[in-house]
Every structure is written in C-alpha cells, then in structure tokens.
Design a protein around this nucleic acid. Structure first.
Lengths: 198, 198
DNA sequence: ACCATCGATATATAATAACATATCATTATC
DNA sequence: GATAATGATATGTTATTATATATCGATGGT
C-alpha cells in the first residue's frame, strides 16, 4: 500500500499506544473487530473511511484534509497537543505517587481502618490506568487532604477521600473527563458509568 | 453515511471547486473515474483510504489524524492557507488584467505584429485557467515590460514577453509552480511539460 | 442549431473490506 | 505450572467499492 495509507496506519497505532489500550479494548470502543485492527495497524488493508472514522473517534482523533502547504504547521500543532497530553499524564502520575506515599505514612490505627484500605484499593486501580490519568487537580486535592491529617483524627477525611477516589476511578474506566457534564456529551457517549467489574 | 464521511466529502468538493477544475479533470489527475468522483462528492460511497489519498494528492491536500483538542486550531490553519491561496489568485488575476490592458494600448503598428498576437493568445489561454493562477510576480514583470514600451520600438520586448507568457501558460497547464526545479520534484510528478494541445 | 462540457446515473464485473469465529505463540502475573 | 491477556493469522461468507462504459438532461459557447 502507499506511503499515505502507511502514515495513517502508523498514526493509529501510535495513538492507541499513547492511550495505553489494547487492540481488544479499542475493538470494544470502536466496534471494529480486533483481528481487523491488527491488519489495519500493519497496513494490510485499504480500509474504508467509516472504519477509520470509528477508530479515530475512539482514539479522540479527528480526520482532516489540509492544504499541503499547511501540513507542516498542522503536524506541529498535533505534536504539541500530544506533548501537552503526555505532560498532563506525567503530572497526574506524580500526584498519584505522592498521594500513595501520604496514605502509607498515616498513623497505624488509621491504616487498619476499612476506609483506608478501600482508598488504597481505589488508588491501586487508578494506578493501573497509567496513560489515561490526567486528573492532576483531583489527585492534588486527595493528597493535600491526607497530608493534613494529624493524629488519629482523620476518619472523616479518609472516608471522603475514598469516595472521591472511587468516583475518579469510575470516571477513568469510562474515559470520561470529570469536567464534562452529562448533558453536554454527544448522545453516542452517554453510557452508564457504573462499575463494570460487577 | 456518518457526519465524518460527509465532512470529508464536502472538503473534497470544496477543494476541487476552489481549484476550478471539473470532475473529469480531477479524474484524469487522480486516476479515480469521474462517475466515482460524483458519488464520492455526494457522500454516496464509503470510500477507501487509497482512493481518498489519490484525490487528496491531486488536490494538493494531505490527510491527517489530529487530536480532537487540536482540531479547531488545525481547521483555522487550513482556512488561513486557503485564504492566502485565494488572495494570491486574486492578485495574479489583477496583474493579468492590467497586462491585457497594457497590451491593448500599444501603438497600432505593434498591435498588428505577429508577436503581439501570439502574446495576446497566450494571455487569453492563461486567463482561462482562472483559479490556478498565482504567478503575481511573473505577470507583474510582463506588465511593466509592456508599459515601458514607447513608440514603435518594442518588438524585441514583445517577443520576449510572448516567450515568457508561453512558458507560464505551459507551466499552468501542468500545474507546476515556476519556482520548483525539475530535480526537486518527486518522481511521480516529473511529467512532460510540452503543450498538450498538440 | 450545433457542439462541447458538465455532474449524475445506470449496468455489469471483479476484487476486497468487514465481520464472525477460532486459534496460535508469546509474555506477564500469581 | 496455571492462567489471562496480547497481537497476529487463518477460514469462510457477505456486502460493497472500484472500474469500464455508456448515457442522460442541463448549460454555455459559437
């Protein structure tokens, strides 16, 4: 196949890797079969626009036709957006690590409490979602809440933190940005936000 | 078909109109049949990437997957490139018109010369290529050459102008920018520049 | 009136994408 | 060692694109 289709295939593969999801996960989100995604990413098919659009949508990409003269500027903007996204991810992972450390240095009496263990579990699950974490602000708030606890007087704060962490974890599983309201989302993404491990 | 494919179809149609070429002309340049182009532009097929790439190439466009967040900025850059292209076209047409006027105000003795008639013919043919004309500089030079002619002492200049106009016309027919050297062109566009009306 | 060109539509055929389903070798985790 | 998950590959079927070729009604130029 041509250079152009190869370029598209490489862009899709890179975007999926950057999001940290598997071909099977992308198949679920896009409706395109995993085996077909494998072929697409290795440039083994001349895929249809509708399939490309489905994959692009699932990867938060848009397909644009741009004047050749503007292509270098467009690629630069695309790279900047990716770089900023990666930086947001790095910052959030940093806050997450500091939150875990704050949790682990709580007094022993608090450590053995169920709320603390629930919080720990949620943060571990969040940690497993590595590349999709961008919630630097929310994690920062969790961390400063924990770091403010003195003595054994922190059960209330820990319980609240556990609830916040659970909500954050559920949002991440559905890849829903916490700032979006339900009403503003396009119809095709108004899916249930319940814990899908049930 | 979906919004996304509709968007692509509309972009293709607009780009072709902007270039001022017919579906049959685009079929020649891209290798995609005219009847298929008609279906594509009316969003009646879910076309393959390779076909889209062929059309994009013939229309001086590139296909890019860009992060959704960067899409507004990318569209703005694309619009700017198109606007500048249109402005370049308008400026060139303006110079062309002024060149024709300068030609028409030459002394009668020079008007009846074969070189003058040849020059007029070339400028008319250039005029027929309306949307693809961007050579403001070259046309400006032609115009100032003609405007500098005084009395009947301009045959040499007119002959040179006729040769320049013929070369410009041939370049336009092949849509080759005059600043590009032959060696720097990719192999697929190293086509013959002879007059194809022969 | 005649002619050329346009975009749209029709018909027939061949090639291939899209999909379902299954399985493989490899890797990582417990 | 067992298990789960991964990307790649295989088989079979169906629907659709891509193409060649032709033609139509509409439009514009001479």
């Amino acid at each position: 196949m041509s250079y152009e289709t190869e370029h598209i295939a490489a862009s899709l593969k890179k975007a999926r890797a950057s999001k940290g999801i598997s071909q099977r996960e992308l198949a679920k989100r896009s409706g395109v079969p995993q085996s077909h995604i494998s072929k697409i990413e290795s440039n083994a098919v001349d895929l249809r626009i509708s399939s490309l659009a489905s994959l692009a949508h699932a990867l938060d990409l848009e397909l644009e036709l741009v004047p050749r003269k503007a292509a270098p500027a467009v690629r630069s903007i695309a790279r900047n957006a990716i770089t900023q996204n990666n930086r947001g991810n790095a910052d959030a992972l940093n806050e997450l690590n500091r939150t875990l450390r704050a949790l682990n240095t709580l007094p022993k009496a608090l450590q053995e409490n169920t709320a603390t263990q629930t919080l720990h579990k949620q943060l571990s699950e969040i940690s497993n979602l590595r590349n999709t974490i961008h919630q630097t602000g929310a994690l920062h708030q969790l961390r400063t809440t924990l770091e403010a606890i003195e003595g054994n007087d922190g059960l209330k704060e820990i319980r609240k933190a556990a609830r916040d962490a659970k909500r954050l974890r559920n949002e991440l599983v559905h890849n829903v940005a916490p700032t979006e309201t339900q009403e503003s989302k396009p119809a095709y993404s108004l899916d249930d936000e319940e814990d899908d491990d049930a």
